[in-house]
Write a protein that binds this DNA or RNA. Structure first.
Lengths: 231, 231
DNA sequence: CGCACGCTTGATGCTGCTCAATTTGTGTGG
DNA sequence: CCACACAAATTGAGCAGCATCAAGCGTGCG
């Protein structure tokens, strides 16, 4: 593992305040693995053996029921996933697959639970991380139940957008079909929702989306910090 | 506060393993209040000052966006709510109102955060409770995105049902309009969804719902422990 | 008794899904 | 560099699910 990767992981809220020995022990016990795109890392209903940290690439968390499937979230570097399952020693509620070539650090669940008892700063970081995850999930439910598909899309764009002067820009790092599933709609519907947003200051150029009139899109999206704030 | 109420609260997963002094300090610092039905206890976007414990009655958690509103969950005795906001010292994401005459113990957020640092068993109970809440929210998202309204209803009924021999029974403790909002549909639609379930072994008698053919309802509902298990 | 409120039922329309066809984009092998 | 193959994205038509609007019950309470 490269020193700069370890350093990046160290900056995560989850590890930032941990004691040095706690951190190095967790990293030492972990396996850093490389995966090609499209590989399934974990499956719903398996027991949680590892805490995963995405060091490089993109990982999609998704869930299934019967023959339906939906994307739950996209994890970028440097982010962790399935902390909750690891802590309560239960099965995963979500599956994970790589969207790109990725590097993932896998830390044995056992080690994480041990560290809980011994490092107070780490423990309160875990509490913070869980509370954050919980609140993010609540916001997700609110978005699903209170907004239409086009509104979810508009707000997602505004959250992702990188402003450059009057304009803003979103560059998709994954397929639109994944985005559609993340937003809770079909690919066809996403296409149409994007068309709808043309009337609200949005221009689509393939995987690149320009927000030419932020005011117009904001009026349509009607964002709320209680749904859209990152944490 | 009656001793039996304190004893009931003590049995909560959140408090069960706490040290005696932690528990008594939290309860001592709390206010036990009685409320009539329909009273708003907390509002979205206010800062989290108290951890709430429902001692008696029913409390509805709901959320709004613009002029839309949705029920997020129903809290029964003995249950807590908004632990996450209290711990991360942030605003509430949800509002709460009483559905019935209720008794609520309100514990100052400050005290809860203090206890975190001093009582290891309490801390790990908090971690467990947060992880549970997180996982419940993830399941809620899965249900919303992967199921139709009628399927959510069928699974909700199966979860609530009290079996008595071949039959099972659900007695609604609150209005159907609240249930419809909890399930993410309109009252009209809930009515129709209930009618649909008549074809799958369900009989409606006002606020009382009989499941006469559990097998048939199970086949329709297709429940999954990864969505429907209580925790 | 009658009013109010919650629930149900019907009619209608919108939102979003499914299925199918076409266009666009991308990577591969000649 | 081009031609081809394949996958993704878009577009259109038809349909299911769900919402809205508008009456009609039924029950409980003043």
């Amino acid at each position: 593992m490269r020193p700069e990767d370890a350093a990046a992981i160290r900056t995560l809220p989850l590890f930032r305040d941990a004691r040095e020995e706690t951190f190095s022990e967790l990293v030492r016990a972990g396996f850093l693995q490389r995966f090609p795109p499209g590989v399934t890392l974990i499956n719903e209903n398996e027991t949680a053996d590892f805490l995963h940290v995405v060091v490089e690439g993109l990982v999609e968390l998704f869930a299934t029921a019967g023959d339906r499937e939906t994307t739950m979230s996209i994890v970028e570097p440097v982010g962790t996933f399935i902390l909750a399952a690891v802590l309560s020693d239960q099965v995963y509620l979500q599956s994970a697959r790589t969207l790109e070539k990725a590097q993932v650090l896998m830390i044995p669940a056992e080690k994480v639970r041990e560290a809980l008892g011994t490092d107070l700063a780490f423990t309160s970081a875990v509490v913070g991380e869980l509370a954050r995850g919980y609140r993010r999930a609540i916001k997700e439910v609110k978005g699903q139940k209170l907004r239409t598909g086009a509104e979810r899309l508009a707000n997602w764009l505004l959250r992702q957008a990188v402003s450059s002067g009057a304009e803003a820009r979103v560059k998709l790092r994954f397929e639109k079909r994944v985005l559609s599933s993340l937003l809770g709609m079909t690919p066809e519907n996403l296409s149409r929702a994007l068309s709808t947003l043309k009337q609200h200051g949005v221009v689509i150029r393939g995987p690149e989306i320009l927000i030419q009139d932020q005011g117009a899109l904001l009026r349509f999206a009607n964002p709320s910090p209680l749904i859209d704030a990152p944490e």
